[in-house]
Design a protein around this nucleic acid. Structure first.
Lengths: 207, 207
DNA sequence: CAGTGTGAAGCACTTCACAGCC
DNA sequence: GGCTGTGAAGTGCTTCACACTG
């Protein structure tokens, strides 16, 4: 398949969310115009994004809400459950795992790990925290697909390496700093400091 | 000033973090090559990014770590304190406000608000939670620069409107969905669901 | 006639390559 | 000789515009 831009994938997420809203409101068709309006983009962009994957609409009529939602779910791989381990039994991981949309979209927490021996064995959002040293051994039974890395900055690369050794192919990272993963492993970093600094820049340089 | 790409600002953040590391290690000069290596980009990109704001290096020698760090801090507007209010006394806001780099880079929490009357008056990370209805009245005295919006999906736009009425010009939003702000107000959204779906797509469509 | 699908044009960010200075 | 600063070339995402179809 042709390489798909990251921005395209992000917009598909947004379209899907709006399609779910339309479903809840009992509406059965929509248009690229309407999707664009509610997703902060243009009708041409919506059509182009969808055209990478096929033709899901009908000329003169628009798109079937139900069909398009199913198609986008398939494209994004949301048709089945993804098994997630959380590394770092802190607030960020907890916020994520208790977030409604998390479970709702097929992401299931199958394990929680921490380096701190004081946290090991304690309950945390319905899970028992395990020592992160056991991750590689546990992985065979847990079969996790995704690791959420929510630990302080120190030693993040070491934890990334451990996750990779455990055979996990996707990482959502909340720690700052440059991290290296081998080819075949996808790493996405959410850097809140960077976002705040972007706001600082905007405030400083506004006209 | 010429319009600066968002991606440029984000990279400046990364360069600054590495410059701080060099400072801690007592090193006084660096090069575009070294900065690129540790920031996941190319030397040409580093030089181009910096060239938008001036010439901070010396040909044949490289950059002074101390000088470049100061320059980037100035560019990003990190030279002074930014006053932050947190809307939503939950886990995300708490994770952010207790994050070390937050205070360290000049972001200070000056108020915490929640819609839930059960939370009002309670202590939260050293602050007393106030009813969000009082935000507009409080703003005159608090003089907040930035609002962090960390509430569930329902009624987010209403809170954005309130923040705008309170005269705040920058919003860091953690709620999903499309939000509208008037010109002159900067909105940055961190959407964890979207990041997870990006991972799901990558796992589904890997070769 | 309304609205999709898509090649072509436009635009913006990145990379190249080299002149210029230390 | 080493490394920056920068116009020019390259690349890839976005927007346009229109043929096409229900």
């Amino acid at each position: 398949m042709k390489r798909i831009a990251d921005s395209t994938v992000r917009r598909l997420s947004v379209y899907l969310r709006y399609l779910e809203e339309l479903t809840n409101r009992g509406l059965s068709t929509t248009s690229s115009d309407e999707l664009a309006q509610h997703s902060g983009t243009t009708p041409a962009q919506v059509r182009k994004d969808l055209s990478f994957f096929g033709s899901f609409g009908r000329r003169g009529l628009g798109y079937s809400v139900a069909e398009l939602a199913t198609r986008i779910q398939d494209i994004l791989g949301l048709g089945h459950e993804w098994r997630v381990v959380i590394i770092g039994a802190g607030k960020i991981g907890s916020a994520l795992s208790t977030y409604r949309g998390f479970k709702q979209r097929g992401f299931t927490v199958v394990g929680v790990y921490d380096k701190d021996p004081l946290k090991s064995g304690k309950r945390w959002d319905g899970h028992v925290v395990r020592d992160v040293e056991t991750l590689e051994a546990d992985a065979a039974a847990l079969m996790p697909d995704i690791a959420v890395l929510a630990i302080p900055a120190e030693g993040v690369q070491g934890e990334v390496d451990r996750i990779v050794r455990a055979g996990i192919k996707a990482i959502l990272n909340f720690a700052p700093g440059r991290l290296h993963v081998p080819p075949g492993v996808t790493l996405k970093t959410v850097n809140m400091a960077m976002e705040l600094e972007g706001l600082s820049f905007a405030l400083t340089n506004r006209d």
